[in-house]
């Protein structure tokens, strides 16, 4: 018993030098050297408001779930029934919500009642109260008044949906100065209550930035092989249309001018990849899912003497330079970087 306690206390530690060797980006460094340095504060309202994000990204040909309705005033709520009359499924989101708070997903109808993904039913009055709460700012950052966004329902590609428990799996891509540097697939679990937030217990599956092939999987920052609820092996996952996803993520840089951000994408069975939201403070757990640190990749991008101007070029560079493929050749990454801008020069 005491030995077990000792083991828990003393064995699960790693030396700072080892972390450095692995190139793990830590919280303080992320905040000071990346977020504070590359993310202009004036760009925050854009990403903190889902409605604004959606409208801006549309101009940059980044598609997102179809906007059905925006409810800005309390009196519009009474007319909600007419709005959703024809709809089977939809999602209600607070524009300024964070971390998936206040999102209500309706997948179908059962008579007058609305069916949630978990199978439980809510009636119209429940939805109207939820809308009222959103407008009052219950879910927004700092409690400021908000608007409710009604979007068409994302129907996840069945292949991916199989892996997840209830919620729609999404793909988080960290883009640094417009270069996709790391990616992972987030699968909700029973522990995460159908949400795709890693710190709530969702499973993170690291994705090879070159191919979209699964690398490792983690839950609560610890390695796992199979999904805890669906029991699916996680190493077989491969994302289709990987290049398209990366280009989407890369375009968000031009749209928002945020140097360091997380781009969340879902794959709709009908419309293909759709952008869900942007995050100006993406978490660090993505490194655990990939089994490698962000720092070498970030340094490689910072070392570029001549950045590429189009999303396609940046993605091509990232896929060629940053994946695990070039790492396996055991070539020091920095060395290849230096010659690169010349080779790819426009």
């Amino acid at each position: 018993m005491i030995n077990k306690l000792k083991q828990r206390l003393f064995n699960d530690w790693i030396k700072p030098s080892q972390l450095k060797q692995a190139g793990i980006l830590n919280m303080n460094k992320r905040n000071v050297d990346y977020i504070a340095r590359y993310n202009d504060r004036s760009a925050y309202p854009l990403v903190d408001n889902k409605l604004k994000t959606k409208l801006v990204l549309k101009e940059y040909e980044v598609s997102s779930p179809k906007l059905l309705e925006v409810i800005t005033e309390q009196h519009e709520i009474t007319g909600f029934r007419e709005l959703v009359q024809k709809l089977d499924g939809f999602a209600i989101k607070p524009a300024k919500g964070s971390g998936g708070k206040g999102i209500l997903v309706i997948t179908g109808r059962d008579g007058d009642a609305f069916v949630k993904p978990s199978g439980s039913k809510v009636d119209l009055a429940d939805i109207q109260r939820h809308l009222s709460n959103i407008l009052a700012g219950l879910y927004s950052l700092g409690g400021s008044p908000d608007v409710a966004v009604v979007e068409s329902l994302v129907r996840c590609e069945p292949m991916l949906a199989n892996y997840s428990y209830q919620g729609v799996p999404d793909i988080r891509i960290v883009a640094f100065k417009g270069y996709p540097v790391m990616a992972m697939l987030r699968l909700s679990t029973q522990a995460s209550d159908g949400k795709a937030n890693l710190h709530q217990g969702a499973v993170g599956v690291g994705l090879d930035i070159c191919t979209g092939q699964a690398l490792h999987a983690v839950q609560f920052d610890r390695s796992i092989e199979h999904h805890p609820d669906t029991g699916q092996p996680l190493n077989a996952i491969k994302i289709d249309d990987w290049h398209k996803l990366l280009v989407m993520a890369s375009r968000c840089f031009e749209a928002t001018n945020l140097g360091y951000m997380g781009v969340d994408i879902v794959i709709d069975e009908e419309h293909g990849p759709l952008l869900l939201e942007l995050n100006a403070r993406p978490g660090l757990a993505i490194q655990m899912a990939n089994g490698t640190g962000l720092l070498p990749r970030l340094h490689a991008v910072e070392a570029l003497r001549r950045p590429h101007f189009t999303a396609e070029e940046r993605v091509a560079w990232s896929m060629a330079q940053l994946g695990t493929a070039d790492k396996q050749t055991d070539q020091p990454e920095a060395k290849t970087e230096l010659t690169e801008p010349v080779a790819l020069g426009v």
Binding site: D12, W13, I14, L19, A22, I24, V218, D221
Partner: peptide, 8 residues
């Protein structure tokens, strides 16, 4: 973080 990232 030395504990959090220890699986590395």
């Amino acid at each position: 973080e030395l504990r959090r990232f220890s699986p590395v």
